[in-house]
Computed example of a mutant assay.
Amino acid sequence: MADDLFAKAKLAMRKAYAPYSRFPVGAALRTADGRIYAGCNVESVSFPEGWCAETTAIGHLVMDGGGHIAELAVVAANLNGCTPCGGCRQRIAEFADADTKIHLCNVDSGVVNTVTMGELLPLVFSTDDLAQGLMSLPNAPS
């Protein structure tokens, strides 16, 4: 089932705008209801003001009304099994569960490893953490 996500991620990677790093990345996610959204990284000369492929795919998901990420594939031209960066791990966690599958791909051979979101980000910052932090502020609403 991850093969179609890999194919979409690879197509997205080919559209990456990465003139500075020369590190094109593509990502594709599937929602629980089967919709697929892809994205590529888009760099800016004003580092680090670009955005990652996973962020682009999530942006497409949100623009289409949102949803839950059931699985995600990431591929980079220059890396065997590219993992999402720290910021993207937190963004993915916003729309995923700890058991959401993350497929790490090789541009030539497809999926080389599959991990869970919980393995990538075991101590995720969640809405529960935010609520607890806000409630501990002086004069917090009760």
Results as ranks from 00 to 15, higher is better:
residue 54 E to R: 01
residue 46 S to D: 15
residue 54 E to I: 10
residue 29 L to Q: 03
residue 60 H to N: 14
residue 15 K to G: 05
residue 11 L to V: 08
residue 22 R to V: 12
residue 52 C to V: 09
residue 8 K to G: 00
residue 21 S to M: 10
residue 44 S to C: 05
residue 38 A to H: 06
residue 4 D to T: 14
residue 44 S to V: 00
residue 60 H to I: 06
residue 57 A to R: 05
residue 47 F to M: 14
residue 22 R to H: 15
residue 24 P to E: 00
residue 58 I to R: 00
residue 41 N to R: 08
residue 26 G to Y: 05
residue 53 A to F: 08
residue 40 C to Q: 11
residue 20 Y to D: 06
residue 4 D to G: 11
residue 53 A to C: 09
residue 26 G to A: 11
residue 55 T to Q: 12
residue 51 W to R: 12
residue 53 A to L: 05
residue 51 W to V: 02
residue 49 E to H: 14
residue 27 A to T: 07
residue 7 A to G: 08
residue 36 I to N: 10
residue 23 F to G: 02
residue 24 P to N: 02
residue 30 R to E: 15
residue 28 A to D: 00
residue 6 F to Y: 15
residue 15 K to C: 06
residue 5 L to C: 08
residue 21 S to T: 12
residue 57 A to F: 07
residue 4 D to E: 15
residue 19 P to Q: 09
residue 49 E to K: 15
residue 20 Y to C: 06
residue 14 R to C: 11
residue 5 L to H: 06
residue 33 D to S: 14
residue 12 A to E: 03
residue 47 F to G: 11
residue 50 G to S: 06
residue 8 K to V: 11
residue 36 I to M: 15
residue 33 D to I: 05
residue 29 L to R: 01
residue 57 A to W: 03
residue 36 I to C: 12
residue 14 R to S: 13
residue 21 S to H: 01
residue 51 W to E: 07
residue 31 T to A: 08
residue 24 P to T: 04
residue 24 P to A: 02
residue 59 G to D: 11
residue 60 H to Y: 12
residue 31 T to Y: 12
residue 20 Y to P: 06
residue 14 R to W: 07
residue 23 F to E: 00
residue 35 R to V: 01
residue 36 I to T: 14
residue 37 Y to T: 11
residue 5 L to N: 06
residue 6 F to S: 05
residue 23 F to V: 02
residue 27 A to L: 03
residue 24 P to D: 04
residue 57 A to L: 04
residue 22 R to Y: 13
residue 54 E to P: 02
residue 40 C to A: 15
residue 4 D to Y: 13
residue 18 A to H: 02
residue 14 R to N: 13
residue 24 P to C: 04
residue 4 D to M: 13
residue 59 G to F: 05
residue 44 S to H: 07
residue 41 N to H: 04
residue 18 A to Q: 04
residue 54 E to N: 09
residue 57 A to N: 06
residue 30 R to Y: 07
residue 7 A to I: 10
residue 6 F to A: 07
residue 10 K to F: 11
residue 11 L to W: 05
residue 13 M to L: 07
residue 54 E to W: 09
residue 18 A to M: 00
residue 58 I to C: 01
residue 52 C to M: 13
residue 42 V to F: 10
residue 21 S to R: 06
residue 47 F to K: 14
residue 55 T to S: 12
residue 34 G to Q: 13
residue 11 L to G: 09
residue 5 L to M: 09
residue 45 V to P: 13
residue 55 T to N: 10
residue 42 V to M: 09
residue 20 Y to N: 09
residue 8 K to P: 03
residue 43 E to Q: 06
residue 22 R to P: 00
residue 28 A to E: 04
residue 56 T to W: 09
residue 54 E to K: 01
residue 40 C to N: 13
residue 50 G to T: 07
residue 60 H to F: 11
residue 45 V to F: 14
residue 18 A to R: 03
residue 57 A to I: 02
residue 30 R to C: 12
residue 32 A to Q: 08
residue 25 V to N: 02
residue 25 V to L: 00
residue 51 W to I: 06
residue 35 R to Y: 08
residue 57 A to P: 04
residue 37 Y to Q: 12
residue 14 R to A: 15
residue 17 Y to Q: 12
residue 51 W to G: 04
residue 24 P to Y: 02
residue 38 A to C: 08
residue 19 P to Y: 05
residue 34 G to N: 13
residue 57 A to Q: 01
